[in-house]
């Protein structure tokens, strides 16, 4: 058995939760939900206190050197752990896909970046694919629909995992979302650099969400969820928005994003 496989089947891997800057500031409950789910899945969870951000805003602005500074810091911080788990597809993809690209010409750091990339996972796919975890005894008498955030979907292949997990929540009825794989218009800095275009995109998304008639909109990436929740609220829609991890952790009847539960 190789080193990697050993780690993955370890009964109790030492996991760092990389909460992401948005969860840290805007929606701490996702962080708590993630800790709880990881512990249920048999992990020893640590939340490194020195964590800030994965560096995406710099990366997407084309500031490669700046991103490298941030990446080096994060690599050092996260090296001691068996696994790094991130409750966001786009932040996980930054570490998993883009950190190694940044060090293509720096063999020493490339190796460290690749090593970290191999141990980094998006939360929902980690729970199913690596830990084989499934919810037990979680009830929620609601209808919900799911939006596939683009980075998780296309850079990491997160598609079936959240649906599989949510199917295990008792009494939760899932409704299909037309255009579930279509971008919501968040795009990180895009939504503030090109607000009018972003608005037109999220308006269409919000209309599609409303058309499902679902009580809840769920997803796996807080940036997108804030974007859609903010638009739904501005449109006066009653749909409540949660990260899928919150529902899986049994927090689906606590206040939704924006608080008016």
């Amino acid at each position: 058995m190789n080193e990697r496989a050993k780690l993955e089947t370890k009964a109790s891997p030492h996991v760092a939760l990389f909460a992401t800057c948005l969860v840290n500031a805007m929606r701490p409950s996702i962080g708590f939900a993630a800790v709880q789910l990881l512990e249920q899945a048999g992990c020893r969870v640590d939340v490194p206190m020195g964590q800030t951000c994965c560096g995406q805003p710099a990366l997407n602005s084309g500031d490669q050197e700046g991103t490298r500074q941030i990446a080096r810091r994060n690599i050092k911080m996260l090296e001691p752990f068996d696994h790094v788990v991130v409750p966001s597809g786009s932040c996980a993809a930054t570490i998993k896909v883009h950190y190694p690209e940044l060090f293509a010409h720096d063999p020493a750091w490339l190796k460290r970046a690749q090593n970290l990339a191999a141990r980094t996972h998006e939360l929902l796919s980690y729970l199913t694919d690596i830990r084989g975890w499934a919810p037990e005894g979680v009830h929620l008498e609601k209808t919900a629909t799911y939006h596939d955030s683009c980075s998780g979907l296309r850079e990491l292949g997160v598609k079936k995992q959240p649906r599989k997990l949510l199917a295990g929540v008792e009494n939760l009825t899932m409704r299909p979302l037309a255009g579930e794989e279509t971008c919501c218009g968040f795009g990180g800095t895009f939504c503030v650099k090109y607000p009018a275009i972003s608005n037109a995109i999220v308006d269409e998304k919000a209309a599609a969400v409303e058309a499902t008639g679902a009580d809840l909109l769920l997803g796996g990436d807080l940036g997108c969820l804030l974007n859609m929740a903010g638009k739904l609220h501005r449109r006066g829609a009653k749909v409540q928005v949660y990260h899928a991890a919150e529902v899986l952790a049994g927090m689906g009847d606590e206040p939704a994003i924006g608080g008016d539960a």
């Binding site: 969860v23 929606r27 939504c191 608005n199 903010g230």
Partner: peptide, 18 residues
């Protein structure tokens, strides 16, 4: 303004996760 011109922003509560 780029955000709030078109959508609302949930008000954070209770300090950071960390």
């Amino acid at each position: 303004g780029g955000w709030t011109a078109h959508r609302d922003m949930p008000s954070p509560t209770g300090g950071t996760f960390l």
